[in-house]
Structure formats: structure tokens, C-alpha cells
Amino acid sequence: MSTADSIRPGRLSGKVAFITGAGAGIGAATAARFIEEGAEVAAVDLNPPAPTDHLLPLQADMRDQASLDAAVEATIEHYGRIDILFANAGVLLPETQAEDLDEATWNTVIDIDLSGVWRTAKAVFPALKQNPNGSSVILASSTAGIRGGANSSAYTAAKTALVGLAKVWATELGAFGGRVNTTHPTAVGTDLVLNDDNLRRYRPDLEHPTPEDVIEPFKRGKLLDTPWIDPIDVANAVLFLASDEARYITGTNLVIDAGSTTKWG
């Protein structure tokens, strides 16, 4: 059994993190940032990354409780405990107005973005409650979890529900020294956002819009001069909430949005 007893310096020195959706984008950036700051990382994904120093790749499907339970068991066997959960896995699918939204899209988004987070909590929380040093849980919400937008019923429902769950779970874990918070990024420059289907929402006049084609419409939604933020911007915010620097922060929402919710709130 490998353990986290080999301490490296950093803001997460000696900590063990369980990150879902760690195969790419925000999850991968956060895993790398955590490792830079001294953590050991269980990187969980439907398509997990290659193993590296201080990173344990694990396959799991957010729709399958057994696979999440197995990933937690493998993490405990390898590292001995879990200190941090970043529930990051999610999907962003093309949606229409509510009356035209098909049930398959609704069910898929809710099953992964909301129920998948609940299944992750079911798998991880027993381990967190046994941690004598407390824990930190970060749920990946969105600016959609603060303000709604057209053609996003399922996504907004899921991300808004995570805000409520964070408050419930902060109460439930608080007695065990656990903290629970949410992050709310604006559009992030990943394949989840910068893909054909999503870009056509902003440039329906183009059959295959590129990121360059949507820079101006993306910028219009923000106070700061950027069309989208980078995965590292979210990773740094998650790092703060995971670290002891945020040791008395729980049940709160950290917005990383270049001012978009202020502009449109």
C-alpha cells in the first residue's frame, strides 16, 4: 500500500485529493496544481489520464454508483485516506427553450451534473467523516448556478441545485470538521465550451464557428476584457478553498467570472 506519508512542501502538503472529471480541462489543471502544492491526487474520469508521479488514475462513471465506490476504495487502499474532494465532472449539452427540450438531454444533464455529484458524495463522505483532521469539499457549479440564461434549463437546474446541496452538506460535514463550498466560473477555454455545438449558440449564422468567431459575443457578457477564462484560473480558486487558507470558509459560493454576474445580475 502506498501512503501519503512522504511529505512534500506546499499549500496542500501531505493532503490526498479525489478529483472527478480529472481527465481534461479544469479537472486536469486542478490535479496538476494540487500536485505542485504537495498533494497526492486520485484522478477520476470516464477516460482517466496517464499515471504520473503523485497521481493515481481511476476510471469511474458518474452515472454508476458501484464504479465511484470502487474508485474511493482504490484511493483509500493506495493513499490511506481522503482529505479533499473536488466534484468536477459534468457535461454541457446543446439545449433549446423549455417546451422544445427533449427528455433525453434533460435526463443526461441532470444524471451527470447533479445526481453524479450526489453519487460522488455517497461514495466519498464516509471516508471524509473518518478523517480526524477534517476535510474540504468543492462542488463545481457555474455562473448558471447564480443566474439563469435562455436555452439552459437542465444545466441551470443542475448547477443551481449544487448551491443548495453545498449548504446541506456543509451542515452535515461540519460536525466532522468538513467544509463544503461551490465554485462558479464563467465560460472556460476548454473543449466543453469551445466546441461546434456550443459555439453555434453564439454564431448561429455560421455552420462551423471557431473560437475566434465568438470572441466579441463572449466578451460582451463580462466587465473585464476577456472572452473566457483559463482552466488555471479555476484551479487556483479551487486550490484556495482546498487549502488551510480557507479553513473557516464553508457553505459559500466563490465566483470566478470576470464580472459577468455583476454585469447581468
Score class of each variant (00 low, 15 high):
residue 115 S to I: 09
residue 115 S to Y: 15
residue 115 S to R: 15
residue 115 S to H: 13
residue 116 G to N: 01
residue 116 G to T: 01
residue 116 G to A: 03
residue 118 W to V: 12
residue 118 W to P: 03
residue 118 W to M: 12
residue 119 R to H: 12
residue 119 R to T: 08
residue 120 T to E: 05
residue 120 T to C: 12
residue 120 T to I: 11
residue 121 A to Q: 05
residue 121 A to M: 15
residue 122 K to M: 12
residue 122 K to Y: 04
residue 122 K to S: 05
residue 123 A to V: 02
residue 123 A to M: 01
residue 124 V to E: 11
residue 125 F to L: 14
residue 125 F to K: 04
residue 125 F to R: 00
residue 125 F to P: 02
residue 126 P to R: 05
residue 126 P to Q: 05
residue 126 P to W: 03
residue 126 P to S: 09
residue 127 A to L: 07
residue 127 A to Q: 02
residue 128 L to C: 03
residue 128 L to Q: 01
residue 129 K to T: 15
residue 131 N to V: 04
residue 131 N to E: 04
residue 132 P to Y: 04
residue 132 P to T: 02
residue 132 P to H: 05
residue 132 P to C: 02
residue 133 N to R: 13
residue 135 S to M: 10
residue 135 S to Q: 06
residue 135 S to R: 02
residue 136 S to T: 05
residue 136 S to P: 00
residue 137 V to F: 00
residue 138 I to S: 12
residue 138 I to P: 08
residue 139 L to H: 03
residue 140 A to V: 10
residue 140 A to N: 15
residue 140 A to M: 15
residue 141 S to Y: 05
residue 141 S to A: 14
residue 142 S to V: 01
residue 142 S to N: 09
residue 142 S to R: 08
residue 142 S to A: 09
residue 142 S to D: 06
residue 143 T to V: 11
residue 144 A to V: 00
residue 144 A to T: 11
residue 144 A to C: 13
residue 145 G to Y: 01
residue 145 G to F: 06
residue 146 I to W: 04
residue 147 R to V: 07
residue 147 R to Y: 02
residue 148 G to Q: 05
residue 148 G to C: 01
residue 149 G to T: 14
residue 149 G to H: 08
residue 149 G to I: 13
residue 151 N to M: 15
residue 151 N to A: 15
residue 151 N to D: 12
residue 152 S to R: 14
residue 153 S to A: 15
residue 153 S to V: 12
residue 154 A to L: 02
residue 155 Y to A: 13
residue 156 T to Y: 01
residue 156 T to D: 11
residue 156 T to R: 01
residue 156 T to L: 01
residue 157 A to F: 10
residue 157 A to M: 06
residue 157 A to V: 10
residue 158 A to P: 04
residue 158 A to Y: 07
residue 158 A to W: 08
residue 158 A to K: 06
residue 160 T to P: 03
residue 160 T to W: 14
residue 161 A to G: 00
residue 161 A to R: 01
residue 161 A to K: 03
residue 161 A to P: 00
residue 162 L to H: 08
residue 163 V to T: 07
residue 166 A to L: 13
residue 166 A to W: 12
residue 168 V to H: 10
residue 168 V to A: 08
residue 168 V to L: 09
residue 170 A to D: 04
residue 170 A to L: 10
residue 170 A to T: 03
residue 171 T to Y: 09
residue 173 L to D: 10
residue 173 L to Y: 10
